[in-house]
């Protein structure tokens, strides 16, 4: 099992894309929950689907996992159409939904045995496989307890154990860390990395930018059913601007003025942070050349402008834009476009 390819059939090697969708649409009543999504997810990677609540992430995943029928467009998983060959798709995928996809009335052991039996293991093999997974996920002691008495982290681990029981080629993780404490979240991240290094493709939806940043090699940003940006985390950051200036003022009363000065000096978008004295401004550097140096120059000019306007700056830093900034910039842009339309 050294190569991730050796377990695959010929047809799967031909299709290097784990997921391909074209113009995928799902309509609920009057809402276009998914409104023409094109995705191309290379096999063997973690692909992040990033978006706020209600952006259409879960709906898209449910269509790809054969749980919902698309209303338009088409979707293929390892070359198999989700509508025409749902069984071929189901053989290759596994889903860990937003809500624990395990039976709460049953014990952890019973849940895994049930699933192993359904996947074709005979009685003895099913029990062995279940015990093996429980041990690997640190659930041996809790094996005989009903899942409803598990902690959030334990439940999530059991859920993922259930999803990798038959080592799927594609694993859907729908907001796997929502509601988890930081320790459990780190464990889930480690598990995802291990699963991918084994050759499984992971499609991860998340609201958390640092999660996508840490795990995904490519990210699609979804808002209101549409992909508004796609690329590597680096691409996305670069598309928004070379960097960002973080400024802390002494007097919160000067923030509105500072916002105006920064926006005029840098010509870009300024974000007011939750902290009443903090602002973040993007530095847009277009064209080629030494963008880092030009970013620094522009940042210096902006600080100068603040000083000239009599605004006292306590602290400042220059950095790469975080994905949060990328995300806000992108979603703001679509709002502007709509206003102009």
């Amino acid at each position: 099992m050294s190569s991730p390819l050796c377990g695959m059939k010929k047809e799967d090697i031909v299709s290097a894309m784990a997921i391909e969708t074209r113009g995928l649409v799902k309509v609920f009543g009057k809402t276009r929950a998914v409104d023409g999504i094109d995705l191309a997810v290379p096999a063997g990677t973690v692909y992040g689907v990033l978006g706020p609540n209600g952006a259409g992430k879960t709906t898209a995943v449910r269509m790809l996992a054969t749980l919902l029928r698309p209303d338009g467009g088409d979707a293929r998983v390892f070359g198999h159409d989700v509508l025409r060959e749902p069984d071929e798709v189901r053989r290759r995928v596994s889903l860990t939904g937003q809500y624990a996809s395990v039976d709460e009335d049953l014990t952890g052991l019973e849940n895994l045995i049930l699933l192993a039996r359904l996947l074709g293991y005979d009685k003895r093999a099913a029990r062995r496989r279940a015990e093996q997974l429980l041990a690997a996920f640190g659930l041996t002691e809790a094996a005989g307890r009903q899942v409803k008495n598990y902690s959030g982290g334990m439940r999530r681990r059991l859920d993922i154990a259930a999803s990798i029981l038959n080592t799927p080629k594609l694993l859907f993780l729908d907001e796997p860390t929502t509601g988890l404490d930081p320790r459990s979240r780190n464990q889930v991240w480690d598990i995802v990395r291990a699963v991918v290094s084994h050759g499984t493709t992971v499609l991860l939806t998340t609201q958390y930018l640092d999660e996508a940043d840490r795990l995904a090699s490519r990210i699609a940003v979804i808002d209101r059913g549409k992909v508004i940006a796609e690329g590597t985390p680096g691409d996305l950051k670069a598309s928004v601007g070379a960097g960002a200036v973080h400024v802390r003022l002494r007097d919160p009363g000067q923030r509105t003025e500072a916002e105006w000065v920064l926006s005029r000096s840098l010509g870009g978008h300024v974000v007011l942070e939750a902290d009443p004295v903090a602002l973040t401004a993007r530095v847009s550097v277009n064209g080629n050349g030494d963008s880092d140096r030009r970013t620094a120059e522009q940042a210096a000019a902006a600080l100068n402008a603040l000083a000239e306007a009599g605004i006292t700056v306590d602290d400042f830093s220059l950095g790469q834009p975080s994905l949060d900034e990328v995300f806000l910039a992108l979603t703001d842009r679509t709002v502007d476009e709509e206003k102009n339309a």
């Binding site: 449910r62 996992a65 054969t66 749980l67 069984d87 189901r90 053989r91 995928v93 596994s94 889903l95 939904g97 937003q98 809500y99 624990a100 996809s101 395990v102 039976d103 709460e104 699933l115 359904l118 996947l119 259930a162």
Partner: peptide, 13 residues
């Protein structure tokens, strides 16, 4: 209402 149904529906059975 619970998520377990989704898991059953994605199984090749």
């Amino acid at each position: 209402v619970k998520g377990v149904f989704d898991r059953f529906r994605t199984l090749p059975i």
